[in-house]
Design a protein around this nucleic acid. Sequence first.
RNA 1: CGGGGCGUAGCGCAGCCCGGCUAGCGCGCUUGGUUCGGGACCAAGAGGUCGCGGGUUCAAAUCCCGCCGCCCCGACCA
Length: 567
Amino acid sequence: MRISKSFIPTLKEVPSDAIIPSHQLMLRAGMMRQLAAGIFSFLPLGYRVMKKVMDLIREEMDAIGGQEFHLPALNPIEIWEKTGRVEAFGDTLFQLKNRPLVLAPTHEEIIGWIAANHIESYKDLPQIWYQIQTKFRNEPRPRSGVLRGRQFVMKDSYSLDANWEGLDKSYDLHAEAYKKIFSRAGLKFFIVGASSGAMGGTGSQEFMVESESGEDTCAICDVCGYAANLEVATSNVEKASRVPADLKLKEIHTPNVKTIDELKNFLKVDESILAKSLVYIQDRTPYLILLMGNDQLNETKLQSILGTNARPAHPDELLELTGADAGSIGPIGLKGFKIIVDKRLENANGLVSGLNKNDYHVANIDLMRDVKVDGYYDLRTVEAGEPCSQCNSPLRIVNAIELGHIFKLGTKYADSLNAKFLDVNGEMKPIIMGSYGIGVERIIACSIEQSHDENGIIWHKSIAPFIVHLILVNSNIEKVVEIAEEIYNKLNENHIDVIYDDRINVSPGYKFKDADLLGMPLQIIVGEKNIVNHKIEVKERKTNNRQIIDIDDVVPFVKKFLIENDK
RNA sequence: CGGGGCGUAGCGCAGCCCGGCUAGCGCGCUUGGUUCGGGACCAAGAGGUCGCGGGUUCAAAUCCCGCCGCCCCGACCA
């Protein structure tokens, strides 16, 4: 492709709305432009990358037996009502005003619908169905360029199986395919155990890229490789022990002491004997939640125990239910509450907590003696430096971008959409589903986040829009033009993706800067100073290595480069 | 949805506080000429409902009210 005839609007300056490197560079390199919050136009160069990524995904999905679909983005709202997800998605679901239609945010419903109508027998199973398609989600706050958009492209696939072993197999196939996809795209990623959230289901994992721009937080162990989303992460943090003495409950006047820190300073004790109390409401039942010291409640863990509509109690509810305000609440003397306790405090005694009377605390609480505990659960949020649950090395807490997510869904959608099949014994059974997603733009953005420098993008060969950036340095010298044209034709004849900066009256410096910004893996520089010796210069973008090679060796050189980088 | 910031030419910004002549600067763009290995130079140009609506005033980019949009932090997020 000739730059002189291409639409690649590069920018010298950074658009002020873009904060993170991938967003800045995608705009500067002329890959895309923003139309509205979370909505982007992909320009030819950006779409070329997108197509490369989609092709790479297709190859690996086809390799595990996936069959590509193209499902509608417009869906009758009726189907979404059947699965209860109009409510579950809430305002995130775009709804049309002049027809009872929604813009699909994902496609479990449509897959389920097709399966319900056309899968009859265990002989039709298993199936892996996928598509690469535009998704619509009315995100409350789009951000970070293409990382969280209201319209984005997703590879979504769905497995249909006759039994749970089949689901495990389909799930594992996807995990392997995903590893190949992200590795081939040149990404450094890790896999974490994750919460299945509102998708429902029995298990899920996320494919993550460590990044300051990430919206997820993960605990990772660099020693043994343990990694988990903070929503589900655990650690070997020290538990409270029982003290020998069997001391009586003791009321303590604690004026103006509200927080755990204030209480610790007031009593001059270690915070590990302080029990923090929080009140949540689930279906009008109040729950008292006890945590050690300043441990942070993990709401995702709580919701997996109580249900997803558990919510913190309002201040006026606190006073009404406990007789005290936040800061003076505790397990002693509470009525009508269920009490659940973090495992770190399992069977502990000698604890201090609120007395449900403003400005009073109570000491020497024995959870076995004084409190009717309805259950001990892992409720706390892991913190940096805590010992890994597998190997006791200190955990790191990092931000990460979610590239892909795989779910074992089970029969939730088959049940609500009546997707059933006849098994070997002639019995009607629900189809067992899995669902698996990859954010296409996120692969592009993550790749740039991980691979760029102050001059621009550094594309990995597998998803680069072009392999070679051919630069005509002296457009005013006929002989130089002639040789550049010749090389351009040769590369094209050999099916090597080449972008050719054939612009006349553009200074060499300008062309070099543009080449670094666009970031093709190889730059071939045709200039007066080398062609007198029948040579040209080759620069590798990633390493900045420069070599002078013979003009006749260009094609073999590039072919060799392509193979070398395949490893 | 809560908090903060911003909206002036394609991009980056100044001007606004303290109202006043024809709304500026850099980059980019057009034409001509020179230049040609790291975002060249000279000359002449084009390009603006100052986000939108209303108000105050002799006079509004500037002050007041309302709305819209965009960015950031948080809440939310299959």
